[in-house]
Design a protein around this nucleic acid. Structure first.
Lengths: 171, 171
DNA sequence: TGTGTAAATTTGGAATATCATGGGTAAGGA
DNA sequence: TCCTTACCCATGATATTCCAAATTTACACA
């Protein structure tokens, strides 16, 4: 799992060190896929062969020739760079992707569970601030609580009660 | 798997270098099949022997003499060029296919999972733009998220809960 | 708790290999 | 004979690998 955030530098040749904990999360593989995030946040999304295998399985589940599938295949499959880490854990960021995500000298690697993101540091700071506000909203916390209760119930297999939450605001 | 997009040039003899990563995806085979894409986007679709074997199996599953089968056999089997890569990984694009896809001096190879596409660069740029817009649509992202959750559930074999997504917008 | 040592990681640069492309030559068909 | 095709080699550009220094991190010991 890709967790935490790390900063790294782009050298004169466009090379970047993948943070060691992320290399571990790649499970020893040296192949890395990178593409501009679908949601238009302006960052890059990336992962290893395991993630791409999951995406392949996901995309081939969508109806062939459907607009949705074609759009996603174009963005994720055709739109991704197929990179290989060198011995010291570096990749060369393609010029095109650097331009797409506005990456120049320093970048941020942000964990995203099964994938990771690559950010321009300033954009990442702004995104972080926005997300912090959103996370603090009562609806967000409530949704998290509901989902957590469901998982707890499912995994506990009876050890925990069903998620009929008692609303603290009542009574 | 055919991933990423590469640009290549058509030389004076009508030859084109297959990008090295695509040659790897062909699994060492030197035979390449090429035909105009069925969906009318104006690009060529291609693959190696593995893809053609899959298509053969698929087409022979369809009722013989059915209009559907005849149409597909005509387009994919009769309509495809059967090419052989030379020692340096090049093929000669047939005149007919170049005309069909409007290919002149430079072309784009776009990965398409089990096959690849060959595009006129300008047409590819336009297609890319359209697909980027479609991919960013909330319905598309939602469809992808649902499909991904299903794959996650299936592959996780119980480690993950069933994909009954909790809508964060509720409550 | 502080310090020294060892290990791992990041960084810079040079050597090497691979790849895309151009051109030449001979064989085969029209 | 002329044209196309298949096969061969050459080369510049690019990417990859290798080596080594600098920095950070982890660990043991005082």
């Amino acid at each position: 799992m890709f967790v935490s955030t790390y900063e790294s530098a782009i050298d004169a040749k466009g090379r970047v060190s993948i943070p060691a904990p992320f290399r571990a999360a790649l499970g020893g593989g040296t192949r890395i896929f990178l593409w501009p995030a679908l949601d238009g946040t302006g960052c890059l999304e990336g992962g290893g062969e395991a993630l791409m295998a999951m995406y392949r399985a996901t995309l081939t589940r969508l109806a062939p020739q459907s607009e949705v599938r074609k759009a996603l295949v174009t963005r994720i499959i055709a739109g991704s760079a197929d990179l290989k880490m060198d011995e010291t854990g570096r990749i060369k960021l393609p010029e095109e992707l650097c331009k797409a995500a506005d990456l120049t000298d320093r970048i941020k690697f942000a964990g995203n569970i099964d994938s990771f993101q690559i950010w321009n540091p300033e954009k990442h700071a702004a995104y972080n601030t926005a997300m912090a506000t959103a996370a603090a909203a009562p609806e967000t916390l409530a949704a998290f609580g509901r989902a957590y209760s469901e998982v707890l119930h499912q995994q506990g297999a009876g050890a925990y009660p069903a998620p009929i939450l008692v609303d603290g605001s009542e009574g």
